[in-house]
């Protein structure tokens, strides 16, 4: 278990190194940072001085080392546009994105898994067919369209939910949360559904397919032949065997939810990291883009690491060493 974790951790470091390389290359070679920082009336001498001051004339490896060193200290420089430290800006917006993403993921899991189990068990039921049809819509409609449709229905026509923003937020030790007020929660509903709908249908279809697969196996037939109750067979034996692929997909999807919150955040003008990133692209604010890139990569790597460890907990066949029994 320990060796396995260390091994996976080392792999994660390698991944992060290459992401940092890409982020740095972008930082350094897309356009001229100095050009973007100064006004048109700045003289060539002043530009050169700034260049030296920023260390842009140093050799590649020195600059990269400095970039990585700073990144380790969570220092990603200063935003060209806002003239504020990038880390500070991202941290200020992180709660908005994380609350939205985690709520979406919970929505996707808590609704997707039971729906998948239900449609897997009652393959030919009327309700199952309804779910499957509706899930097609969830899978094929683009996220922004779902968001706009929801806004049109619930904000414009019915007027029950706010169409943009986070509503009322409460500041708890620097974490601005919308989870504690009615207004904040109401504002969360539509963005969370918009962001989570695709994942929910994906999880539902995945769980359904896995359930159907597992229910055909010999050990399920044998479990029935032993006279176990339906509940024990379906939920004890079948569902647990569908978990490994579901954990994989859910883990990766959680990463995507955070990364692709960009679109939902734009539609709902949600003041999160995604919106910040999109604005950074429009103004070629490379420090923000680089920091965002590294942070998203970090999320993916951490989630993958957790997923790998979860496999280990769920599936005894992966616990190779004798006598070591995971949890």
């Amino acid at each position: 278990m320990l060796a396995f974790t260390i091994n996976r951790f080392a792999q994660s470091l390698v991944v992060m190194f290459f992401v940092a390389l890409v982020a740095f290359a972008m930082f350094r070679y897309v356009g001229d940072p100095v050009h973007q920082m100064v006004g048109i009336e700045t003289t060539l001498e002043e530009r050169e001085a700034l260049r030296v001051e920023l260390g842009l004339n140093d050799p590649f490896y020195v600059q990269f080392g400095r970039f990585v060193g700073n990144a380790l200290l969570l220092d990603f420089g200063v935003s060209y546009q806002h003239k504020k430290p990038v880390t500070e800006m991202i941290v200020a917006r992180m709660p908005a994105t994380l609350e939205l993403s985690i709520l979406s993921a919970l929505f996707a899991l808590l609704i997707g898994v039971p729906m998948g189990v239900y449609t897997g068990l009652n393959r030919d039921g009327f309700l199952s067919k309804c779910f499957m049809t509706v899930s097609l819509i969830g899978i094929s409609l683009p996220t922004f369209l779902i968001g706009i449709l929801l806004i049109f229905l619930f904000a414009v026509i019915l007027g029950v939910l706010p169409s943009f923003g986070r509503g009322t937020v409460v500041d708890i030790g620097g974490w601005r949360t919308g989870l504690l007020t009615v207004g904040g929660l109401k504002a969360l509903i539509m963005p969370a559904i918009t962001l989570g709908l695709f994942q929910m249908t994906l999880i539902m279809r995945l769980v359904r397919a896995e359930m159907l697969e597992v229910l055909r196996t010999d050990y399920i037939k044998f479990a029935r032949a032993r006279g176990l109750t339906n509940r024990a067979v379906n939920f004890g034996h079948a569902l647990k065997n569908t978990l490994v692929p579901v954990i994989t997909i859910t883990g990766l999807q959680l990463g995507s939810i955070i990364a692709f919150a960009i679109i939902t955040e734009t539609v709902f003008q949600w003041p999160g990291m995604g919106l910040l990133f999109l604005q950074a692209i429009q103004t070629v604010d490379i420090p923000i883009m680089a920091a965002y890139l590294i942070m998203i990569a970090m999320f993916f790597v951490v989630i993958n690491l957790i997923v790998d460890i979860l496999y280990y907990v769920v599936d005894p066949r992966l616990r190779i060493e004798r006598g070591v029994r995971g949890t």
Partner: peptide
């Protein structure tokens, strides 16, 4: 080989 549930002792 396939009659026993692989995830339970």
């Amino acid at each position: 080989l396939t009659s026993l549930n692989p995830l339970y002792t």
